Computed example of a mutant assay.
Amino acid sequence: MKKALTVLAVLVASACLFLSCGNKTKADNSLEDLKARGVFVIGLDDAFPPMGYRDSNNEIVGYDIDLAKEVARRLGVEFKAQPINWDSKELELKTGNIDCIWNGFTITEERKSALNMTKPYLNNAQVVVVRNDSKFNTLADMKGASIGLQQGSSAEEAVNSNKEFKDSLAKILPFEQNLMALQDLNINGVDGVVMDIVVAEYTIKNSGFPFHTLKEALVPEEYGIGFRKGDDKLTAEVEKILEEMAADGTVAKISEKWFGTDISVIGK
């Protein structure tokens, strides 16, 4: 009997120890680990002007790049822009290839549940880009039309969430990059392209494409930065630095460089 009680006590103690260990949360060393490595790696689609793209010298530049570089400098680490397949962005983050997704990354409920998303730093909307010589003036006019969009983007999510608009279309063509979709629009391969208004207006202005955006937006959006779930310290520190940059005028200066005016919503 004594032996049986002893065995039972050992089993109970082992079970308690197991449950205790199982309930322990993983320590958040995200900020310390990044500083120890000495480099801040952001994942981006390097064909997404003006947020992040390659210039004529093949250098990765853009609004998000300038913001992130200054954040890295204030963190006391080096900066690295890592081009990724946008359709695999969450996997790149999960496997540790990048520290965050920072490239016109739209805040959604799904992403907020899977990732650490910062507060918004820029407003955006999903719109339809059409040729100037097209007959399309409203979303309803697009009935029976074909549209292009970037695969895995919030444009795809916006179309899928608008059932009436989606069902009215004849065809939806996925592209690896927005620029590819716009080039197809330029040769009448598609009738329109759904994309971010921030990117659309910048591209139209600087490319010479004979395009315009429909005034009616599919859905309003906000840009944020995506970190791994649980990387709370790093997320909070980047948010804090961005707010300091907004307060001292750095964000406004960067915004004016790329957009001609301060369109940031940080701290506003």
Rank of each mutant, 00 (worst) to 15 (best):
N162P: 04
G226L: 06
N124L: 01
D133R: 02
L173C: 03
L17H: 09
I60E: 03
F227K: 06
A246C: 09
L75D: 00
K94S: 15
I172M: 13
D87Y: 04
G52A: 15
E156P: 01
N132P: 04
I147M: 06
V190W: 10
T138K: 07
A125F: 01
D133N: 14
L218D: 00
G52V: 02
I147D: 02
D141R: 00
C21G: 11
L11Y: 04
L149P: 01
K3E: 14
I263E: 12
E243C: 11
A4H: 08
C100A: 15
A145E: 09
D33E: 15
A236R: 13
R73N: 14
T25S: 14
V10D: 07
Y63Q: 06
F40D: 02
K89Y: 05
I98T: 11
R111Q: 10
D99T: 09
V12W: 11
L17G: 14
G62I: 02
F136P: 06
E201Q: 15
G189Y: 10
E78Q: 15
N29C: 10
L173G: 00
Y121V: 02
P50Y: 04
N124S: 14
P49L: 05
E239A: 11
K205A: 15
K26M: 13
N57W: 05
I204P: 00
V238F: 08
V193Y: 06
